[in-house]
């Protein structure tokens, strides 16, 4: 086995900076935010997804990952998170390949919608100012976002999920060192 890659250079302050990036993304759906404190994650994990998981996952949060043993070993060591093969039992679901259907993930309950999963999807690219039209909390009038590399039926999945609010899965889209978030409250329309 090759030597384990290190995690955040400064576990305290880098996690804080990454958290603020994710918080900004979640607060302003569709806005693209760059991670400024990258950790050298093993392939196929990209910088943004690595930062999100290092910042948020730990022993309390089962992770379901399709990223293979090297990533699991790295995350397990630095975040201390347990892994589960069952996507419906995971608090964080990491998709480096094809994103799973939203309906197979834990959407929480009507009384406790916050127990739902957060889906972290690695996508090919994110572009602002074009593509989907996003409206809802966090957005002054509308945000435009184009995502390259999501399943073709993602939009119809999203619309089906919107009908279940407050239940639902929150999504973080990660491309390279950049990320954008889709909290369950956002409405997405074809651009």
């Amino acid at each position: 086995m090759s030597a384990l890659q290190p995690g955040f250079a400064d576990p305290v302050l880098d996690a804080q900076a990454s958290f603020r990036a994710v918080l900004e993304a979640m607060s302003r759906p569709g806005r693209i935010i760059a991670i400024t404190t990258p950790a050298p994650a093993p392939a196929p994990l990209n910088t943004a997804a690595a930062a999100v998981l290092l910042t948020l996952a730990d022993a309390e949060t089962p992770v379901c990952s399709d990223a293979g043993d090297a990533v699991a070993g790295w995350l397990g060591f630095h975040a201390g998170c347990p892994f589960t093969p069952a996507p419906d039992r995971a608090r964080f679901v990491l998709a480096t390949g094809a994103a799973p259907a939203l309906t197979v993930l834990d959407a929480g309950t009507e009384e406790e919608p916050q127990t739902s999963a957060t889906l972290i999807v690695q996508v090919e690219a994110l572009a602002a100012g074009e593509g989907w039209r996003l409206t809802g909390p966090g957005i002054e009038s509308e945000h435009r976002l184009r995502v390259y590399g999501l399943p073709e039926d993602f939009l119809s999945q999203w619309q089906a999920q919107r009908a279940r609010f407050p239940r639902g899965v929150d999504v973080v889209l990660c491309a390279g060192d950049r990320l954008a978030a889709l909290p369950r409250s956002v409405t997405i329309e074809e651009g």
Partner: peptide, 23 residues
């Protein structure tokens, strides 16, 4: 840091469900 992570996760869910109280 473990406490911060727990609170950060709660904050993100709170933002995703505006106005809902997260224990």
């Amino acid at each position: 840091e473990a406490t911060k992570r727990m609170i950060r996760r709660a904050i993100l869910k709170a933002v995703a469900i505006p106005g809902h109280q997260i224990p």
